[in-house]
């Protein structure tokens, strides 16, 4: 197994606010890692540092062995390696579903249009939404939009998929269709790093669970051990609140 993501001594500040404190962790190729923790614990900031939607202030990040730094070419390479799915889908509302998936390939890898559209159809079919290909995102439900967003990211043929709370903006009845798509993706062997509050998903799919609080990693453990016998007092408190709700 090779290392897909390696983070060492990562620190991030927003002004004087210390958002990430000395983060060390790694994700192996083919591994599924779930990050959980209370709101404001730095989960999303961490995942957004990995493809530099946020710049980090100190530490080393390697994605597929490429060191993230000021080198712009490395940044482009890393963004090609890692696909990202956002909480609010962030589909392009002025483009059809098919164009949403095809245009990024044309713009960022100069794929010829017929090839890009083929690829788009193939992945739209895989997330079972090909019949909506000619519609605009505004005409789809939230769950459908998020599946299109997953297809759009997959079209870039990334080696790693980053999910930033992919179901948090969805109505409850739509969460399942998105989680099912993610489970299928995991079964296909995709390397996945998922920030989520869906503990059922974590238990079912994750190889390891990372628990964060106040910008720090508190505990990293396989799901069985994390959910049934958390080692740290803070994880215990977090999990007990989940059970009570």
């Amino acid at each position: 197994m090779t290392t897909a993501i390696e983070v060492q001594g990562l620190n991030k500040y927003f002004g004087s606010y210390h958002a990430l404190r000395n983060i060390d962790f790694h994700v192996e190729s083919g591994e599924r890692v779930v990050i959980c923790g209370p709101s404001g614990s730095g989960k999303s900031t961490l995942i957004r540092c990995l493809n530099q939607l946020e710049r980090h202030d100190a530490g080393e990040i390697r994605v597929s062995g490429i060191l993230l730094g000021d080198n712009v070419r490395n940044l482009d390479a890393i963004r090609r390696e890692a696909g990202m799915v956002f909480q609010h889908f962030n589909l392009f509302p002025h483009l059809t579903v098919l164009e949403n998936c095809a245009l990024p390939q044309i713009l960022s890898r100069k794929t010829p249009r017929p090839e890009a559209e083929n690829c788009a159809r193939q992945y739209l079919d895989r997330v079972r939404i090909l019949d909506q290909a000619e519609k605009f995102p505004g005409q789809l439900s939230g769950g459908q939009q998020q599946r299109v967003a997953i297809a759009r990211a997959l079209c870039m043929e990334p080696r790693i998929m980053l999910f930033d709370e992919p179901t948090s903006a969805l109505d409850p009845e739509m969460i399942h269709e998105v989680l099912d798509t993610m489970v299928e993706l995991a079964e296909g062997g995709m390397t996945m790093l998922v920030v989520t509050h869906e503990m059922g998903f974590a238990r079912q799919v994750a190889d390891r669970v990372v628990y964060m609080e106040a910008g720090e990693i508190v505990e990293i453990a396989p799901p069985d051990r994390f959910f049934d016998a958390p080692a740290d007092e803070r994880s215990q408190r977090f999990l007990s609140k989940l059970v009570r709700n």
């Binding site: 493809n51 963004r79 696909g83 956002f86 962030n90 589909l91 392009f92 890898r109 990211a153």
Partner: peptide, 9 residues
């Protein structure tokens, strides 16, 4: 952000 994450220049 979505465009950046997709590597679009």
């Amino acid at each position: 952000e979505a465009a950046q994450a997709l590597g679009i220049p």
